[in-house]
Simulated assay, not measured.
Amino acid sequence: MAFLFVRFLISGGLATIIHWVVFALLAHIGIVAVLASTIGAITGAIVNYYLQFYVTFKSQQKHIKTLPTYLIAVGFSFFLNGLIFMGLEKILPNELMVVQILTSMVVTVINFILYKKVVFHDR
């Protein structure tokens, strides 16, 4: 299980780097920042799906089953990220980096559980 979590972190990390690179390239050529970030996030989510599917969880399911569940999990994680961030920001209003790090840690663990038990779980 520990090695699975490491693969999950590496795959997610690579997807995040791709998100940031796409964002930076698009922003550099003059795309509006929020659009550049959105395109980067979508690109990162697509890369993350394939890395988690093939590398981390080595799923044998059909994409027609896993992709919709993945999209729901991503939507839930996005909502959860905002909710946790808002809650922690009220507790630590002057420590935004700490708040973001804590939020990311919690969401990462929840994503791992969701992906392992629901999204990529071979039944």
Rank of each mutant, 00 (worst) to 15 (best):
I39Y: 02
E95Y: 14
A24C: 15
T103Q: 10
S11H: 05
V47L: 04
T66P: 11
S59C: 12
I18M: 07
A45Y: 12
F23H: 06
V6D: 00
T108L: 06
L83N: 06
S11V: 00
A15N: 01
V118Q: 07
I18S: 01
F5I: 01
G87A: 10
V98S: 15
V98W: 04
V118E: 04
F5C: 02
G82H: 03
L71H: 03
H19P: 00
G82Y: 01
F23Q: 06
V118P: 04
Q100I: 00
F78C: 10
S59Q: 09
V106F: 11
L25N: 08
G13R: 14
L51Y: 03
L80K: 13
D122G: 05
L26C: 11
L67D: 10
G44V: 10
L51W: 11
T108H: 02
A41N: 11
A33V: 14
Q52I: 03
L35V: 15
I72S: 15
N48G: 04
G30C: 10
I39A: 01
T16F: 10
G87Y: 09
I84Y: 10
F76K: 13
V119W: 13
V74F: 09
M86Q: 06
G12S: 01
G44W: 06
P68G: 07
T43R: 02
Y70G: 01
F112D: 05
L114P: 07
A33H: 11
I18P: 00
I39G: 00
G13T: 14
E95N: 14
S59E: 11
Y115D: 07
H19C: 10
F112S: 02
L102C: 14
T16W: 05
N48R: 08
Y115M: 09
T43S: 01
I110M: 08
T38L: 12
E95L: 14
L9M: 07
